[in-house]
Amino acid sequence: MSSPDTLHLVCPHCHTTNRVALQHLSSAPDCGKCHQPLFTGQPVALDAASFDRHLSRSDLPLLVDFWAPWCGPCRMMAPAFEAAAAQLEPQLRLAKVNTEDEQALAARYQIRSIPTLALFWQGREIARQPGAMGQADIVRWTRAALARPR
Rank of each mutant, 00 (worst) to 15 (best):
E82W: 01
F120A: 05
W70H: 14
A86R: 14
P90V: 01
V64G: 12
A68N: 07
W67H: 14
L94M: 07
V97G: 04
R108V: 13
A107V: 08
P115R: 07
I126R: 07
P61G: 09
K96R: 14
L88G: 02
R128W: 03
R124Y: 04
Q110Y: 05
L88A: 05
R124G: 05
R93P: 02
A127E: 09
A118S: 13
W70M: 13
A84I: 06
V64E: 11
P73H: 04
W121H: 14
C71W: 06
I111L: 04
L60D: 01
P79T: 12
Q122S: 10
C74H: 01
R124E: 13
E100M: 11
W67I: 03
L94C: 03
T99W: 01
G123E: 11
C74R: 08
P79R: 12
R108P: 08
G72I: 15
P61I: 14
N98L: 01
V64S: 08
M77C: 03
A127Q: 06
D59S: 10
F81S: 03
L119P: 01
R57A: 15
P115H: 07
L117P: 04
L92C: 09
L55G: 09
T99K: 06
V64F: 10
D59W: 04
R57S: 14
E89R: 08
E125M: 15
I126C: 02
A107L: 14
Q103S: 13
A84H: 01
F120S: 03
S56K: 12
L105C: 13
Y109G: 05
R93S: 12
Q87F: 10
M76K: 08
R124P: 00
Q122N: 12
E125Q: 15
L63T: 04
W67N: 03
E100K: 13
L88E: 01
Q122G: 02
W121N: 10
C74L: 07
A106S: 09
M76A: 15
M76G: 10
A84T: 00
V97C: 08
Q122F: 11
Q87V: 12
F81M: 03
A68F: 08
P79H: 11
T116D: 02
L92Y: 06
A95G: 03
Y109H: 14
P61K: 09
P69G: 12
Q87S: 14
K96P: 00
T116W: 04
F66L: 11
Q87R: 15
A127R: 00
L94V: 00
P115E: 10
A118F: 09
W70T: 15
E125V: 05
P61H: 11
Q110C: 07
A78N: 06
R57H: 15
C74Q: 02
V64W: 14
S58R: 02
L60A: 06
R93L: 08
K96I: 01
L88S: 00
S56P: 06
A83K: 15
